[in-house]
Design a protein around this nucleic acid. Structure first.
Length: 574
RNA sequence: GCGGACGUGGUCUAGCGGUUAUGACUGUAGGUUCCCAACCUGCAAACCCGGAUUCGAGUUCCGGCGUCCGCACCA
């Protein structure tokens, strides 16, 4: 057994023992890929979510929305998830290996992705494609692997097909009209959503890393592609980001540089992507991630979704190696356009004013409906359109007009009139581009736990400390009477009640067993501050505050304690 | 999905056809203790689920579920 898996086992045991995270439904046998956050973990999750919200909402041009998790099929057809999540798999009858069917037939078909199961099967047999694993040609019929959880909306027969959302992002695209109105059409702006996503993984592995229901947090940031984005990245000067750029022709290698340098050298291709990479780095280090265990890996061009022009994964290092925890993608206008095409909605566009209004003063050929209609009947619409699109006004009649279906018609002067159009065009509607940072919160939480988990020893015995940042620690403070007698327990409970009135502070009281044992329990779930009531407290109201990370202690008055906690942290008293 | 290993109190584990199912840690009730899992005395707490073989199954067999590893799949 490697030390990494020892560490994972030890951490997992602790997480179960202390009510942080454990496999769900375990008394019913358990279900792979589903986890409970327990009494302590629930607070951890909430605090990480809250830090994430505040990080983005404090930018001022970002709002929060919340959408349903049940999503009608048409939405996911438009977004591409129904087909993308409907890949087929073929199994080799002789060695039982399984492969993506479309990958097997790639050489024999332009667009293998779009083929049906029977089509894939016939290409496999017609071309005698052999198994990459055992070289035999003996394929079972391909099966669809839909990774979305299906459901029906409506309890009666004929309910509408729907799926549990595989990502929260569609919510931001579909509420774009509302978001745009909120911001009064002034790009750039963004919207966030924190919530559950669902993927029916074939075989979830690696604990919390691949779950079937998971906590996501996504930001969609809408920008005008014609406006050069300028972000002040100087704040991050001097911080070396670990980058693994797309190798293009060579091999991938690690480089370390400022984010602004990476942008200047066009390693990061878009300034807004660079800004979000840096902001994401800040978010993670603020909640206690180890900066040495964060790197950015650029998608290779064949790995990148076809609509994305630049895409970086943020990877965190832990007991499972480097794991993707955040994806930051420039998605172009792909998503809004997809929904526009699917619905014919005109609400998904933003307005841009031209620098100078365009004065139009031109002559156009306008069809006279009462003549063109009877003359061309069902083709009248095409004729009208072709006339409106004419660039050169015909100088003589009759003339030949080409229609969009390739045919020609003869137009005489009774059918049209030439009119002069004078107008001022002040701007135009366009599809905004979007930059999307998408966070897998459970993966991030796992790495916070992993980075913070210290296995040390005290007096020859194993001793566990969870070095969680104060900003996400499930409890900020534990109140400990040295003994539960002579009134110390009473004072402790009163102090707990008082401290709980402070906004955002979680406090618990622990009065059982020896003081050292209670410190150990608090260290294990990462409580940064332990406040102890002793005999001196009975006399002068002072208490001792113990710092988790180095076990040092100082004595302060309860008034000071309250004041410091109100201003956010006890760190300043040390 | 395939192949292999495994599944015993909250956690870690002993057990190899017949035991009152080991032990430790944790928890808890009390005692003791003036700040780091101390000590003493109690208490609570488990054989993943189903079927089969057997007089008798935690133990053997079959199936399911789950965990871990490899292959495959995947953000």
């Amino acid at each position: 057994m490697t030390s990494d898996s020892d560490r994972v086992n030890s951490l997992m045991s602790m997480l179960k023992r202390r009510g942080i995270i454990f496999p769900a439904f375990s008394i019913h046998g358990g279900i792979a890929g589903l986890y409970d956050y327990g009494p302590v973990g629930g607070r951890l999750l909430r605090k990480v979510q809250q830090q994430w919200r505040e990080h983005w909402l404090s930018k001022g041009n970002i709002v929060e929305i919340d959408s349903p998790t049940i999503t009608p099929e048409s939405v996911l057809q438009a977004s591409g998830h129904v087909s993308a999540f409907n890949d087929h798999a073929s199994e080799c009858n002789s060695c039982n290996a399984i492969f993506r069917s479309d990958h097997l037939v790639e050489e024999f078909h332009q667009n293998a992705d779009s083929l049906s199961g029977p089509e894939l099967d016939s290409i496999l047999s017609e071309n005698s494609i052999s198994c990459p694993s055992c070289k035999n040609v003996d394929w079972a019929n391909s099966r669809p692997m839909n990774l979305m959880f299906g459901t029906k909306i409506g309890a009666t027969r004929g309910g509408r097909q729907a799926y549990m959302r595989p990502e929260t992002a569609q919510g931001m695209f579909l509420t774009f009209p509302m978001i745009q109105r909120h911001f009064r059409n002034r790009l750039p702006y963004g919207a966030i959503q924190v919530g559950k996503g669902y993927r029916n993984e074939i075989s979830p592995r690696q604990g919390m890393i691949r779950q079937r229901e998971f906590n996501m947090a996504e930001l969609e940031y809408f920008i005008d592609p014609n406006v050069d984005a300028h972000h002040d990245l100087s704040k991050w000067n001097g911080i070396n980001f670990q980058l693994i750029p797309d190798p293009e022709n060579g091999e991938q290698k690690n480089i370390n540089m400022d984010i602004s340098t990476a942008l200047e050298q066009n390693i990061v291709r878009h300034p807004t992507v660079a800004m979000f990479m840096a902001e994401t780095y800040d978010f993670l280090t603020n909640i206690g991630a180890d900066p040495e265990k964060i790197r950015f890996r650029q998608h290779e061009s064949d790995e990148m979704a076809h609509y994305a022009s630049d895409c970086w994964d943020l990877e965190m290092h832990g007991s499972y190696g480097w794991v993707e925890c955040v994806g930051i993608a420039h998605r172009g206008c792909y998503d809004l356009e997809a929904h526009e095409n699917a619905t014919n909605s005109n609400e998904l566009r933003a307005w841009r004013d031209f620098d100078e209004p365009i004065e139009v003063d031109k002559e156009v050929v306008s069809a006279i409906g009462s003549i063109v209609g009877p003359a061309f009947r069902q083709r009248a619409g095409q004729v009208t359109q072709a006339l409106a699109e004419l660039e050169n006004i015909p100088t003589s009649f009759p003339f030949e007009l080409s229609l969009s279906d390739g045919s020609n018609v003869t137009i005489d002067d009774s059918m049209v009139k030439v009119v002069r159009v004078q107008e001022t065009i002040r701007g135009e509607w366009f599809l905004p581009h979007v930059v999307e940072p998408a966070f897998g919160l459970d993966r991030i939480i796992w790495h916070l736990l992993d980075h913070g988990y210290e296995m040390t020893s005290k007096e020859g015995e194993e001793y566990l400390i969870l070095h969680l940042s104060e900003s996400v620690a499930p409890y900020e403070v534990v109140v400990l009477p040295l003994f539960e007698k002579d009134g110390m327990g009473q004072i402790g409970k009163e102090l707990q009640t008082t401290l709980l009135q402070i906004n955002g502070i979680g406090v618990y009281y622990d009065g059982t067993r020896s003081i050292g044992r209670r410190y150990a329990r608090a260290d294990e779930i990462g409580v940064p501050w332990a406040v102890t009531i002793d005999y001196e407290s009975l006399e002068d109201g002072s208490v001792t505050v113990r710092r988790r990370d180095d076990q040092s202690q100082i004595r302060i008055s309860t008034d000071d304690l309250i004041q410091h906690l109100q201003s956010g942290s006890l760190a300043s008293v040390f």
